[in-house]
Simulated scan of single mutants.
Amino acid sequence: MKIYLLSLVVGLLVGALYYLLNVKSPAPPIVALCGLLGMVMGEQLIPLIKNLIS
Results as ranks from 00 to 15, higher is better:
Met1Trp: 08
Met1Asp: 14
Met1Lys: 13
Lys2Ile: 14
Ile3Arg: 12
Ile3Phe: 05
Ile3Pro: 03
Tyr4Asp: 03
Tyr4Gly: 04
Leu5Ser: 12
Leu5Phe: 10
Leu6Gln: 07
Leu6Trp: 04
Leu6Thr: 09
Ser7Met: 06
Ser7His: 01
Ser7Arg: 00
Ser7Phe: 02
Leu8Val: 09
Val9Cys: 10
Val10Asp: 03
Val10Lys: 05
Val10Pro: 06
Val10Ser: 12
Gly11Pro: 02
Gly11Thr: 10
Gly11Arg: 02
Gly11Glu: 02
Gly11His: 01
Leu12Asp: 02
Leu12His: 01
Leu12Ala: 15
Leu12Trp: 03
Leu13Val: 15
Leu13Phe: 13
Leu13Cys: 14
Leu13Tyr: 04
Leu13Met: 15
Leu13Asp: 06
Val14Tyr: 08
Val14Asn: 07
Gly15Lys: 00
Gly15His: 02
Gly15Ala: 12
Ala16Val: 14
Ala16Ser: 11
Leu17Val: 15
Tyr18Glu: 15
Tyr18Phe: 15
Tyr19Phe: 05
Tyr19Trp: 05
Tyr19Lys: 11
Leu20Val: 11
Leu20Cys: 07
Leu20Gln: 14
Leu21Asp: 07
Asn22Tyr: 00
Asn22His: 05
Val23Gln: 13
Val23Trp: 14
Val23Asn: 03
Lys24Arg: 06
Lys24Pro: 00
Ser25Gly: 03
Pro26Ala: 02
Pro26Tyr: 01
Pro26Val: 02
Ala27Asp: 10
Pro28Ala: 10
Pro29Ser: 04
Ile30Lys: 02
Ile30Thr: 05
Val31Gly: 04
Val31Pro: 00
Val31Ile: 06
Val31Cys: 00
Ala32Ile: 10
Leu33Met: 13
Leu33Gly: 05
Leu33Arg: 11
Cys34Arg: 01
Cys34Tyr: 01
Gly35Trp: 05
Gly35Thr: 03
Gly35Tyr: 05
Leu36Gly: 11
Leu36Val: 10
Leu36Asn: 06
Leu36Gln: 11
Leu37Glu: 02
Leu37Cys: 04
Leu37Asp: 03
Leu37Tyr: 03
Gly38Ala: 11
Gly38Met: 09
Gly38Lys: 01
Gly38Ser: 07
Met39Lys: 11
Met39Glu: 11
Val40Ile: 13
Val40Pro: 02
Val40Leu: 12
Val40Ala: 09
Val40His: 01
Met41Leu: 11
Met41Arg: 00
Met41Glu: 03
Gly42Thr: 07
Gly42Arg: 01
Glu43Asn: 09
Glu43Lys: 09
Gln44Tyr: 02
Gln44Thr: 03
Leu45Trp: 04
Leu45Ala: 14
Ile46Phe: 09
Ile46Asn: 07
Ile46Ala: 12
Ile46Glu: 08
Pro47Met: 06
Pro47Tyr: 00
Pro47Thr: 05
Pro47Gln: 08
Pro47Cys: 08
Leu48His: 07
Leu48Tyr: 11
Leu48Gln: 07
Ile49Asn: 09
Ile49Lys: 13
Ile49Tyr: 09
Ile49Ala: 14
Lys50Phe: 07
Lys50Cys: 09
Asn51Pro: 06
Asn51Lys: 15
Asn51Trp: 12
Asn51Gln: 14
Leu52Lys: 15
Ile53Asn: 14
Ile53Thr: 14
Ser54Phe: 11
Ser54Asn: 15
